[in-house]
């Protein structure tokens, strides 16, 4: 097991290197630069040149890249051009907001998606199946931005059950966090619920048709044991892989949700950084998020190996 984790960790190094190069290159390739944002539309070319010099943007790109990599080697991710704060510090302030939201959305996704998919498979072609699949299709089809706005007006304005926006950290006030995060989490989760429910349903249906399930039933095992122990345990293997992807989608999908619900998360931070051409913030922030996602995928791979002995034995 440790070998699998180590191999995956080593494999992450080139991934991070490529991501850092692509991010650096793309930020330099797109037009517009931070000096114009800082100086404003009235800034003279001289002022812009001065700002660029102060920010080190007048250096050749390869020098900027080397400077950045040298900093990274020393644990320095750079300093945001517009906020003046260390990238690592800003990212670590914002990442917990996104992670907490994504975790909440993941719980909703797992509970609703797995249950919906399992019940739909067990009641194939009944109204339960139809309703679950209709609900999942709705989740896939309705843009989370639109859904979020609808919820704000329904639950926030008309019913007054939940706040329309804002954020209270989980460790500061758990109940307040739950109130401010519920609508964003539902809005973020619904697409993934739909996806997971459909995948769970099809996987379960496939497993339920296997010979060993038929054998288990023929042996007279109770239905809950057949479903819970034999069918679900086997269906979980491909579902685990999907869950890894769902986590990535939840974090990347948080951009829109965070903007809509005024949450100070990493998605909003990086969006603003791109719009403001805050190079160090985009480069460093994206690298840290990528590192986190790579880590999640390594954990998923390890879980996969735990669930499926064949993976352990087949791995070199």
């Amino acid at each position: 097991m440790a070998g699998i984790a180590l191999r995956r960790l080593l494999g992450a190094v080139p991934v991070l290197l490529i991501v850092s190069l692509i991010t650096f290159g793309m930020m330099r390739a797109i037009p517009g630069d931070p000096s114009a944002i800082i100086g404003g539309i009235s800034a003279t070319q001289e002022q812009l040149a001065q700002i660029r010099h102060e920010l080190g943007l007048d250096q050749p790109a390869y020098i900027q890249l080397l400077t950045w990599y040298t900093g990274l080697a020393h644990g320095d991710f750079g300093r945001s051009l517009l906020m003046g704060q260390p990238v690592l510090q800003v990212t670590m302030q914002r990442l917990p907001v996104t992670l907490a939201l994504s975790a909440y959305a993941l719980v909703l996704t797992l509970v609703l998606g797995l249950l919906g998919g399992i019940f739909a498979a067990l009641r194939q072609n009944t109204w339960v199946d139809q309703a679950a699949m209709m609900f999942s299709m709705l989740g896939i089809s309705v843009p989370n931005f639109f859904l979020g706005l609808l919820m704000i007006f329904l639950f926030g304005v008309y019913l007054g059950w939940l706040p329309t926006g804002g954020y209270i950290p989980l460790w500061q006030d758990p109940v307040g966090w739950l109130r401010t995060s519920t609508m964003p989490a539902i809005s973020l989760a619904l697409l993934q619920v739909g996806l997971l429910a459909r995948i769970t349903r099809s996987t379960m249906l496939e497993v339920l048709r296997q010979d060993y399930i038929r054998t288990a039933r023929a042996k007279g095992l109770p239905r809950r044991l057949v479903v819970g122990k034999h069918a679900l345990a086997n269906a979980l293997i491909p579902i685990t892989t999907v869950v890894g992807i769902v986590i990535s989608l939840l974090i990347s999908g948080s951009v829109v949700t965070e903007t809509l619900f005024s949450l100070p998360g990493i998605g909003q931070l990086l969006t603003q950084a791109v719009l403001n051409r805050d190079y160090p913030m985009v480069q460093g922030g994206l690298l840290l998020v990528t590192a986190f996602l790579v880590f999640v995928n390594i954990v998923v791979d390890v879980c996969y190996a735990l669930l499926d002995p064949r993976v352990r034995y087949e791995s070199p």
Binding site: L149, I152, V157, T259, F261, S262
Partner: peptide
């Protein structure tokens, strides 16, 4: 509050 709809909703509540 970057989203205009959310600002309006917040003002109304």
């Amino acid at each position: 509050v970057p989203e205009p709809g959310a600002r309006v909703a917040g003002l109304r509540t």
